[in-house]
Nucleic acid binder design. Sequence first.
DNA 1: CTTTCGTTTAACCCTTTGGTTAAGTATAGT
DNA 2: ACTATACTTAACCAAAGGGTTAAACGAAAG
Lengths: 87, 87
Amino acid sequence: MSIQTTIKALSDPTRRQILDLLKSGSLSAGQICEKFPVSGAAISKHLSVLKDADLIRDTREGKYIIYELNASVLEEVMLWLTDLKGE
Amino acid sequence: MSIQTTIKALSDPTRRQILDLLKSGSLSAGQICEKFPVSGAAISKHLSVLKDADLIRDTREGKYIIYELNASVLEEVMLWLTDLKGE
DNA sequence: CTTTCGTTTAACCCTTTGGTTAAGTATAGT
DNA sequence: ACTATACTTAACCAAAGGGTTAAACGAAAG
């Protein structure tokens, strides 16, 4: 995954909030939806952007789809930022 | 400056390249332009986005406008990322 | 097997974004 | 005072982004 894909995914506030939510534990798409004042379709699209960036992973559990955070790809961004900051 | 403004500014590859350039030292708008295959107007707009985000500062020197990196605002982004990664 | 529930995909609508060219502003040099 | 140089701003355009509603899909339950 490119740093471009990662940062683009991070550039929307709703998506960052979703990541913040998942920090405390995995949630189903529906549970995530409840937290935002937008349609399920909108959230579903955000989730797919985050998934394409590999910032989240999903697994189906029965009729639910559970999303979990994958923070490991943030490493690349951190490195770039650290380098930019110089030391 | 909000983290939103900062990340949005970072979300364009040309703007990130500009920041990378300025890491090695301050440059005039024209010198920055030379490095990119787009019009001066396009670069000027990128510079203004970076400036609004306080990621760069400018000072006029004669007929040149010199841009310098201001990496300090990256701290907030770093903190958010670090928190998300969970130490 | 049909229905219901959870979620995604399709089709669409605006707004934002990143580019262009052309015109404007500011400083330097003649 | 003019002209050239350095850069920005204005006006415009096509593409991308984030939202909506409605249709489709997958698994479970009746």
